[in-house]
């Protein structure tokens, strides 16, 4: 069933949804690695946990960048184009602002992996 006119709300929250997935994954990955003694392992020649966390972080930042750039283009290009006129400009602006906040949070939360041992 189509929910008329609702989709800009989840779209605006996309950045934070990526943040939530990233946060859950890095926390879960570290918890499992420590509980199962996998933290000493290596992946592509790098220490497992930092490599995994940084890889996930790169993916998450990429996703947020795509979300933010698309919103930016729609703001710059005016909204009357392919998106149609029914999407309030405010929601696109909100998408962009939320993407920026999410990128900051994602980056911030991943940084400790460079400073702190995984399971000490």
């Amino acid at each position: 069933m189509q929910v008329a006119g609702f989709s800009p709300i989840p779209a605006a929250l996309a950045g934070l949804i990526v943040w939530a997935a990233h946060f859950g994954l890095i926390y879960g990955a570290n918890a499992v690695a420590c509980a199962r003694g996998l933290a000493g392992g290596r992946w592509l020649g790098l220490p497992l946990v930092p490599a995994l966390v940084l890889g996930l972080t790169a993916l998450a930042l990429l996703a947020v960048a795509v979300i933010g750039l698309r919103a930016w283009q729609r703001l710059e290009g005016g909204l009357s184009g392919q998106e149609g006129e029914n999407e309030p400009r405010f929601m696109v602006w909100l998408t962009l602002a939320i993407a920026l906040l999410s990128a900051l949070a994602i980056l911030w939360e991943a940084l400790p992996v460079l400073l702190v041992p995984a399971c000490a």
Partner: peptide, 29 residues
């Protein structure tokens, strides 16, 4: 909206003294 989401990523900061791995604590910090 941002606070609504980010505040779900804080729960372990009530559990710093429970022996959870340091890196996990740092995520929440």
């Amino acid at each position: 909206l941002g606070t609504g989401f980010l505040s779900f990523g804080l729960w372990v900061h009530h559990m710093y003294a429970t022996g959870i791995p340091q890196l996990s604590l740092s995520f929440f910090s």
